[in-house]
Design a binder for these strands. Structure first.
Lengths: 193, 193
DNA sequence: AAAATGATAGAACGATCTTTCTCTTTTTGC
DNA sequence: GCAAAAAGAGAAAGATCGTTCTATCATTTT
C-alpha cells in the first residue's frame, strides 16, 4: 500500500512535469506561465498534473526545492573533493561565479520568486527564507574552517555579493559584473587575490 | 488645440491612477495586480483609465518613470547642497542606505519588474536598462569629481552593492545587511571609513 | 449659446486563469 | 489472470484577466 512509484522508480510523469515547469518558471517568471503551458510542454494532461500536485503553488515550491537541492549538491561535491579548508574558500567563490555565468543567466530563482510573492508567510517565501539561511550558514562554516577572522561577517558579505552577481549578471551581463564581483568576494573572504 | 489639461493643470485622475498603481505594483508585484484593482482603489472608471493610458504596460512604464525621477531628484538635491566632491561621495552612500531603509523595503522596483518581464526588448526592460545605465554613469561622475582612482570600477562595485542592499534588505531585513553594505561601500569608494 | 473635452457609469467582449469532473485505456502488483 | 492504481483525453466549471464599447453628465472654451 501507499506505493509511490511505478516500475522505473519515481513517477516519470511527475519528473517531466517538474523539469519543464522549473525551466519555464525560471525563464519566463511564475505568474506568466499558466498550467496549460506546463502540461502542454510536458506532454501530460491536467488530470495527471493535479494527481501529483495539489495546486500550482505546490509545483512552485517543488521547483524551488530542486534549485535548493542543486546548490546543496554542488557544495557537498566541493567539500567531498578533499580540498583543504583554505583552498575550499577559493573553490566556492569560483563555483558561485561559474554558476552565474553558466546556469543562472536569468537571475536568482529565489529572488525572482520573492519578487512575485509579497506575502512573507506564504510557502514560497518560506522556502526562499530557508534556502537563504542555509546558504549563509554554509558559507560561514566553510569560512570558519578556513580560519577566516569574522567568518560571520564575511559570510554575510558573500551572500550580498552573490545576490548582486545574480542580479547584475542578468540585467547588465556577466562580463561587466565579473571583475567587480571577484575582487570584492576575494577581499571579503580574506583570501589573497 | 491639443490642450492636455483641465483647469487644475495636469489631469487629477491621471495622477491618482499613477500614484495608486505605483504603490500596488511595488507592494504586490505587477502581474498580481489587475486593472480592476487599480481603478477601484483610485476611484476611477475603466474608461478614464484607458483614456490616459493605452494599456496596462504603459502604466507600468509610467510607474518606473516615477521611480526613476525620484532617484534623479535625490541626486540633484544632493549635488545642489553645495557639498564638496569628496563629501558628496559619503552623502550619496548614506543616501542610498537611507533609501533602502526607509522607502524601498520591498526590494528594487526595477529588479522586481525585470523578474516579471523576461523579454529584454520589451518597453519595461528597456526602461530598466536605461535607468541602470544612468545610475551607473551618475555614480561614476560623482566618483570622478572626488578624484577616486578607477572611478569606473568603483562605480560598478557600488551598483552591485546597491542591488545587493535592496535584495538583502527585502529578504533578510535591513538591520542584518547594513553593516556588510556600508563597510563594502566605503571601501569600494575609496573613502576612509 | 454652441461645441468640445474629460470624467462617470456600466455592460460586454474574448481570452485565459486554476481547478474539478467523468470516462477510457494502459500499466503494475499479487 | 485480476484487481488496483496511474495516466490519457477532453469537457466544463467559475473566476479574473485586459480591453472596448455606448451613453450620460459636467465643465470649459469659443
Amino acid at each position: 500500500m501507499a506505493s509511490r512509484s511505478t516500475s522505473t522508480g519515481t513517477s516519470e510523469a511527475r519528473e517531466r512535469l517538474l523539469r519543464t515547469a522549473s525551466e519555464l518558471f525560471y525563464r519566463e517568471g511564475i505568474h506568466s506561465v499558466g498550467v496549460d503551458r506546463i502540461i502542454g510542454e510536458a506532454g501530460v494532461t491536467r488530470a495527471t498534473f493535479y494527481r501529483h500536485f495539489p495546486g500550482k503553488e505546490d509545483l512552485v515550491e517543488a521547483y524551488l526545492g530542486v534549485e535548493d537541492a542543486n546548490i546543496r549538491g554542488a557544495f557537498a561535491a566541493a567539500e567531498a573533493s578533499g580540498a583543504e579548508p583554505k583552498q575550499l574558500v577559493g573553490l566556492v567563490i569560483e563555483g558561485l561565479a561559474d554558476d552565474v555565468a553558466r546556469h543562472h543567466t536569468r537571475g536568482c530563482p529565489f529572488i525572482n520568486a520573492a519578487a512575485e510573492y509579497p506575502d512573507a508567510d506564504s510557502g514560497v517565501r518560506r522556502a526562499v527564507a530557508e534556502h537563504r539561511e542555509w546558504f549563509r550558514s554554509e558559507l560561514e562554516s566553510v569560512l570558519t574552517a578556513a580560519e577566516v577572522e569574522d567568518a560571520a561577517g564575511a559570510a554575510a558579505q558573500l551572500v550580498l555579493l552573490r545576490d548582486a552577481a545574480m542580479v547584475g549578471g542578468y540585467l547588465d551581463g556577466w562580463e561587466r559584473v565579473r571583475p567587480a564581483f571577484t575582487e570584492a568576494a576575494v577581499r571579503a573572504a580574506g583570501v589573497r587575490g
